[in-house]
Amino acid sequence: MYADIDRIARGSNHAYGATDHLHEAHNHLRSVEVSAGMFGRTEAAANAEALAYRAHERHKRALDEHHRNLTWIGENTAGVATTLGEADHAGRDTVRRGGSVDRPE
């Protein structure tokens, strides 16, 4: 089996980099709030505020969820890269010693 361990590790790093961007976006979005009267003082403005508030909250939740998912992906791909790297080194060492690699039946 061939696994490009360096590429898997780079993928993990990209996932972590994306989590940083999501964190910044979330902080920026959180710093801006929908305020009363921002669209005026009509009934239509109140409806627009309610819609904007709900959309704002959905976006914050979506950023949080994407952050959690990318963190999970980064952690798991880093673990896979480590596990495959260790297995690769163990196999290499076994071959260098002149032994055979045990294969599951």
Rank of each mutant, 00 (worst) to 15 (best):
Y2F: 14
D6A: 11
R7V: 04
A9M: 11
R10W: 06
R10G: 02
G11S: 14
S12V: 05
N13T: 13
N13A: 15
H14L: 15
H14N: 15
A15S: 13
G17M: 08
G17I: 03
T19H: 03
T19G: 04
T19V: 15
D20G: 15
A25M: 10
A25P: 04
H28R: 12
S31D: 09
E33Q: 13
S35G: 03
S35T: 15
F39A: 05
G40D: 06
T42M: 03
E43L: 05
A44K: 07
A45N: 04
A46I: 03
E49D: 01
E49G: 01
A50I: 00
A50F: 01
L51C: 00
L51R: 07
A52E: 02
Y53L: 12
H56N: 06
H56K: 07
K60I: 10
K60M: 11
A62Y: 01
L63F: 02
D64L: 06
E65Y: 04
E65G: 00
H66I: 00
H67F: 09
N69R: 11
N69C: 04
L70H: 03
E75S: 04
E75W: 01
N76M: 06
T77G: 00
T77R: 03
A81T: 08
T83E: 14
G85N: 13
G85R: 08
E86H: 13
D88R: 14
A90V: 12
A90Y: 10
A90D: 11
G91P: 00
G91C: 14
D93L: 15
D102E: 13
P104S: 12
E105M: 09
E105W: 07
